[in-house]
Design a protein around this nucleic acid. Structure first.
Ligand code: SF4
Ligand code: SF4
Lengths: 131, 131
DNA sequence: TTAAATACGACTATTTAAGTCGGGTATAAC
DNA sequence: GTTATACCCGACTTAAATAGTCGTATTTAA
């Protein structure tokens, strides 16, 4: 209940590590080894972040990834939703396909809570975690 | 990611319904039928709440459940943790061994976020949802 | 005695998250 | 130009968590 995904954690750990190293390219292997993260899984995540323009990749020997400027200003809400899809503590906050929906007597108060949680992540920037 | 369990939703729906009906005993079947909730699953949840002293049960025909006084003052944190166990957006916030723990570079900022989320649920009482 | 209801535990199914594999492309170093 | 390193990409498999079902026993009002 209410868990972040492992992928998000790995992404943040990697970002922080890369940020510490400045402009040099860091390989997925280096990070995977250092933090005991499954390499293939981390690689996939980093590749996703390349597509999102969060980081820049360099191929070939001595290649790897480095963080793009400006990433730290992105809100955690955007970061999380880019990587994992919309945040919603219940189904009707995402796609509305719930058989209880029509008679549901808790929908509105729950929606309020969802807003509160989103608000928390809106006020946190990626840089607050990775710097 | 960050989902409430269905069980919690069913519990809240049931509590709200029972509260609307005052002191009369409401059967699991009535609630299950009304909100299209799987009856056996709802029943199990209600039984759990009986053990927690959240509601009172009456057996036999015209039996059922009714809400105990004072339930509405309980915080959502306690309610959720009673039903589903400790809240923690990552493993190390609960206890669980995490192989990254020793070198983890995001543990502290994540812990802060977890506190923020817990704070939200601490300030919400069950009655805020079921009344 | 019967029927409606709770009580419990074991079981199965479904969904989601986590992790793995195989084959490809780019590029620096020799 | 061969080799080794590293990114790229999609399909696949496994594991874990959630959701739902079933069988049987017990209580009790009518
Ligand atoms: S409609 Fe009610 S039961 Fe369905 S997802 Fe929303 S809150 Fe939950
Ligand atoms: S130690 Fe780091 S990786 Fe492990 S659960 Fe905590 S935050 Fe996540």
């Amino acid at each position: 209940m209410l868990k972040l995904t492992r992928k998000l954690e790995y992404a943040l750990i990697a970002l922080r590590h890369m940020q510490d190293k400045g402009d040099t390219f860091i390989s997925a292997k280096e990070i995977a080894d250092m933090y005991l993260i499954p390499q293939e899984l981390l690689a996939k995540t980093l590749q996703q972040m390349v597509k999102l323009n969060y980081i820049k990749a360099a191929q070939g020997p001595h290649g790897g990834y480095r963080v793009r400027k400006g990433l730290t200003e992105i809100s955690m809400t955007q970061f999380m939703e880019d990587l994992e899809g919309p945040i919603g503590i219940v189904d009707c906050n995402i796609n509305a396909e719930c058989i209880q929906l029509e008679n549901c007597n808790i929908r509105l108060p729950i929606k309020k809570i969802n807003s509160n949680i989103r608000a928390i992540f809106n006020e946190i920037r990626v840089g607050d975690i990775t710097s």
